[in-house]
């Protein structure tokens, strides 16, 4: 029972990290039809910014400085996403394949740039001491960092859903996901919605990057690429354009991954891609998918 609980909560924690990567991907694809290969780069930029704050600006990590480095990572990644959208994506308006290709290029350049500056070896990101402690639930001993991932992801999930539900720009984004040409035809400025989606997506990925550095004990330029693939899988399983779908799929995949890995090391990755293939072949739009462009 205690092992079951440990695996379950670790799985949910992993799912929370997947969600942070996938939510932005899902919104960007849902609204703009851009498959964003640079999302892994956003994540890496967030992680390196967090590392810089945690090692150079505030070398003695406390809870508050960690929150600050998470926030800084999110802002840096969000700004980079905004910059990429303005400089590159908007110039390739309606050339969807080219937009996807150019993001591949951006992710290569960012990875190589960071690798050239800082090397490819993983660097340790200092955390407050209590992150390494464990909590006891019943007779299960569970590392406390899991709850941080789950908490942060939950806050961002609520924040994103609130923006989508209660603000004007959120309304435009939701309408754009359903039918972009109709929104444009009504004379509403969709461009602003595009930029917002890129910033929010970049922010979530950046925050995720800092947390992933804690989870995987290090910051490396290569971390974005490997997490991006899981981001894609979560988005596709959950349905493009649906934040709630991404959240559900992230949990499903995180938990399955942990349980499969418990029985056979490495089996988790394999099971995850099989889930993806199975979902797509039975329901090509994903669990809660709305768009089909």
């Amino acid at each position: 029972m205690s092992t079951f609980l440990l695996i379950l909560i670790t799985g949910i924690g992993l799912g929370a990290l997947y969600f942070l990567v996938a939510s932005g991907l899902s919104l960007i694809y849902g609204l703009m039809g851009v498959l964003n290969f640079a999302h892994g780069a956003f994540l890496t930029i967030g992680a390196f910014t967090g590392l810089w704050i945690a090692t150079k600006v505030f070398p003695n990590p406390t809870t508050w400085t960690f929150i600050f480095s998470m926030f800084a990572g999110g802002i840096a990644a969000g700004l980079f996403a905004l910059l990429m959208e303005q400089l590159v994506i908007t110039r390739l308006y309606n050339r969807h394949i080219d937009q996807a290709l150019v993001t591949v290029g951006v992710s290569l350049v960012v990875t190589a740039l960071l690798g050239g500056w800082f090397g490819f070896d993983a660097r340790f990101l200092p955390t407050p001491l209590w992150f390494t402690k464990a909590a006891t639930i019943g007779d299960a001993i569970i590392p406390v960092d899991r709850f941080i991932y789950i908490g942060v992801a939950a806050i961002l999930l609520i924040a994103m859903l609130s923006i989508l539900k209660f603000t004007r720009i959120g309304l435009i984004i939701r309408a754009g996901v359903e039918n972009r040409s109709m929104v444009t035809a009504l004379g509403i400025n969709v461009r602003l919605a595009f930029s917002t989606v890129f910033f929010i997506g970049g922010f979530a990925a950046g925050v995720g990057g800092v947390l992933i550095s804690v989870f995987s004990y290090g910051v490396s330029p290569l971390m974005g690429g490997s997490w991006l693939i899981y981001g894609f899988i979560v988005v596709v399983v959950g349905g493009m354009g649906s934040i709630a779908g991404s959240a559900i799929a992230a949990m499903l995949i995180g938990i399955t991954n942990q349980f499969a890995n418990y029985y056979v090391t490495g089996l988790g990755d394999f099971v995850v891609v099989i889930i993806l293939a199975a979902v797509l072949l039975t329901k090509p739009t994903g669990l809660l998918g709305k768009v089909s462009h």
Binding site: R91, D98, V102, V109, T111, L113, G116
Partner: peptide
């Protein structure tokens, strides 16, 4: 200096940059 030489030493940097320019300006 390292901030130029480091990235230039990574093939992916040059190739990625060429790639972006081709997609944008020379399809």
């Amino acid at each position: 200096p390292n901030f130029i030489g480091g990235p230039l030493a990574e093939p992916a940097f040059t190739l990625g940059l060429i790639f972006i320019l081709i997609v944008m300006f020379a399809p």
